[in-house]
Structure formats: C-alpha cells, structure tokens
Design a protein around this nucleic acid. Structure first.
Length: 116
DNA sequence: GCGGTGACTGACA
DNA sequence: CTGTCAGCCACCG
C-alpha cells in the first residue's frame, strides 16, 4: 500500500475548502456537495476537527445557516470570528452577516449558476 | 452488532 | 425569532 496517497473523498473535500476565496464563507454541506459527497456534511466537520494544516482556510467554513459551528465563547469560536473579521467578513452574534444578493452571487461566481 | 457522540441539516411547532 | 425532533454519516468503546 502506498503511504503518499490520501483518501479521494477527503482530498476532494480539502480541495473544495481551499477553493473558498478570502473574504468568503461556505457551508459544510455546500463543501461536501462540491466535493461530490452530498449528505456528508459531518464528514467535512470531522476532517476539520482532525485537520492540522495551517494553510487550510478552515475558518471560512460555517453552518448552513451562517452560524459558527463552535460553541459560543470557546477558543475555536473566537479564533474563527477573529480570522473572518480579518478578511472583511461581518460576524454578528456568532453568525456571518451576508447580503442574500452577495451570497447567491458568490455561489454562482465560485461554482456555477446551476443548482436552481 | 450496538449504543453514544459530534466543527451537520432540514422540517416543524 | 427560538426550540425541538428526526435523519444523516463516520468513529469509538
């Protein structure tokens, strides 16, 4: 067995996460779907939980409703909010504030106007 | 095989 | 708006 090759699913998920541009955010399910793994949102979460890659923009991944996945007040929570704000993302009440127009436009700009 | 747990999601009250 | 519930997938003891 080769030790230099990673699991295709995980690799696709990580790739999808890296594709999220600075100043933007994406949902767990959105990333999973983009990786060709619909319904695997929890798998994305598990990957991020065990991730050690510093270059990975993990802070750009939020829940489907725009809320931070970490518990409010926790270290991870504060860190994520800090990083997002540093990229110009508006975070209010532990939730990412984003105009619906930009949200839809962003999704289309990144991965195509399909889906609806 | 089984029940519990988690950086989840959608539907419903 | 909030809270509850069922469904979901991957991992662990």
């Amino acid at each position: 067995m080769d030790a230099m090759s990673a699991d295709p699913p995980a690799a696709r998920i990580l790739a999808a996460i890296r594709d999220v541009p600075r100043g933007a955010v994406a949902g767990y399910g959105q990333i999973a779907r983009r990786a060709g793994l619909p319904g695997r949102a929890r798998m994305v979460a598990r990957l991020l939980a065990g991730n050690e890659d510093r270059s990975l923009p993990w802070h750009r991944i939020v829940r489907s409703d725009g809320r931070i996945a970490f518990a409010p007040g926790s270290a991870g929570f504060r860190e994520q909010v800090r990083r997002l704000r540093a990229e110009g993302v508006t975070v209010d009440g532990g939730r990412v504030r984003m105009p619906a127009e930009d949200a839809g436009r962003l999704d289309a700009a990144l991965w195509g106007p399909d889906r609806g």
